[in-house]
Structures are given as structure tokens and as C-alpha cells.
């Protein structure tokens, strides 16, 4: 097994799964009926994407684990998602700001992965890029609406961006896993993604009459299994059924 290849795909799957799980928390609680449906739609796409990626990760690992084993019986130290994905949902401004930052990240990432030397990853990216484009259009729209909206909505969107800004550097870190993926033409250079991402984000923030937050400090560790306090709570809910009734199936 190529451990770095496995971890690369696992990280992609974990990001999709943990963010998808957060999005489902709005189901039945969104501010508008249409939003409730839209959020559930997008959450399903994330969970579907996680299934494809985690199945593939399990296959690369070659130890007989399934997508469900990876999703439901790993502990927090074994998850390698970005910290940004696991932060609690906050208010709708926080939720949509996070979606926008991550949708834009995924948009550029999947655009590159379409031409990955890994055929399976390329196939997943070709599928995911289509829906990511819808997701990004919607989340960008909310950043604009709230940012360039009422005094209160503007304030809340600005606070949301400030609150998550120090978690964004982690999206573009480069460790030995990334270095090997770049060398094998499997994944893009995070630095390149960073420049594409930053340009889009800056343009939207400006258009939304908001200001780009100042980076005061930076938090990371998710990709190496070091998570925030929120992660354990998320997993206890997500994994409840499999932990209580191990091996339970439909």
C-alpha cells in the first residue's frame, strides 16, 4: 500500500463527510423552507462524495475495511479533515461563509483533480465538479446578500469571516503527503490552489462590501488527527448507532 496515496484520498473523504455532517444539522432548522431543502440537497452531495472517496480510500488501504468502517468506527485522532470543516455551525452567516470558503476551495481542487493521473480520483472529480459549481454559486450569493444587506446581516457576516479566518491557512499546508501527490501528478500544489482561492475570495468579499480579515494567528492539526473540542461531540452524534450496535446494517 502507498500510505501517502491512501491518506490523501482519506483526507478528501473526511473533509466531505465532516462538512456534510455539519450541514445536516440545519435540516428542519433553516431560516427559510427553500434554504432548508437547498442545504439538505447540498449535504447529500457531500455525503455522497464522502462515500465515493472513503470507499476508494479503503480500497487503497487494502485491509478489508469498508467506507462504513472508516466513517463510523474511527476515533477523532484517526480523522484527517480540516479543522474548518468541524467547527460548530454557528448562525446562518457563519454556516454560509464557511460553505463559500470551502466550496471555492473544492471548486479549484476538483478542477485540477479532473486531470489527475489517478483515474478513480479523476472520475470522482469529474462528477463532483458539476455539483460543486452549484454549491459555490449559492454560498457566494449568501455572502453577497448578507454582506451587502442590512446593518445587522453585514455585521454578522463580517464576524463570521473573522471567526474562521485563522483556520484557513490549514487548507493550503503542504506536508510529505502533498509533496508525493504533486510528484506523481495525482494532486495539485496547495500553493497554486491558494492563489486561485485567495483571488476569488477577495473579489467576493469586496463586492459584498466586507473587509478581508487580518490573519492574527493560525490553527491547524486536523490533517494529522489533532482536532478541536467540537470534533468529539460531532462524532458522538454521527457514530452513535454504530457505536451502540456494532455491525448493525440495513
Amino acid at each position: 500500500m502507498n500510505k501517502n496515496h491512501y491518506r490523501y484520498v482519506l483526507r478528501l473523504g473526511d473533509n466531505a463527510l465532516i462538512l456534510g455532517q455539519r450541514m445536516t444539522e440545519w435540516c428542519g432548522h433553516s431560516p427559510l423552507l427553500e434554504e432548508d431543502i437547498a442545504m439538505a440537497n447540498c449535504a447529500l452531495d457531500h455525503v455522497g462524495r464522502a462515500r465515493l472517496l472513503l470507499s476508494y480510500a479503503a480500497e487503497l488501504e487494502g485491509e478489508g475495511r469498508s467506507e462504513d468502517d472508516l466513517a463510523f468506527v474511527r476515533s477523532d485522532r484517526e480523522f484527517e479533515n480540516f479543522l474548518l470543516c468541524e467547527l460548530p455551525i454557528g448562525d446562518y452567516a457563519f454556516t454560509m461563509a464557511r460553505q463559500y470558503l470551502l466550496d471555492t476551495y473544492h471548486y479549484h481542487l476538483f478542477t485540477e483533480l479532473v486531470s489527475s493521473s489517478d483515474e478513480t480520483l479523476s472520475a470522482i472529480a469529474q462528477k463532483a465538479i458539476k455539483e460543486t459549481t452549484y454549491h459555490m454559486d449559492r454560498s457566494r450569493d449568501w455572502v453577497l446578500r448578507l454582506g451587502d444587506g442590512s446593518e445587522e446581516s453585514h455585521e454578522r457576516m463580517q464576524v463570521a469571516l473573522e471567526g474562521m479566518w485563522n483556520y484557513t491557512e490549514e487548507l493550503f499546508e503542504r506536508d510529505p503527503v502533498d509533496v508525493q501527490m504533486i510528484a506523481e501528478a495525482i494532486g495539485p500544489d496547495p500553493e497554486w490552489l491558494h492563489s486561485k482561492w485567495q483571488a476569488d475570495i477577495n473579489a467576493t468579499i469586496k463586492k459584498a462590501t466586507l473587509s478581508v480579515p487580518e490573519k492574527k494567528w493560525s490553527l491547524s492539526g486536523g490533517r494529522n488527527g489533532l482536532h478541536t473540542e467540537a470534533m468529539g461531540h460531532l462524532l458522538s452524534e454521527m457514530q452513535h448507532l454504530q457505536r451502540t450496535y456494532p455491525g448493525l446494517s440495513w
Partner: peptide, 13 residues
Amino acid sequence: LISVFGSTACKSL
């Protein structure tokens, strides 16, 4: 258009 996301992911309202 009312919403890009309809009753299922493949439909708009």
C-alpha cells in the same frame, strides 16, 4: 426561479 434546489438535487423550483 424560486430556488435552484428543488425537491431533489436534480430539480429547481
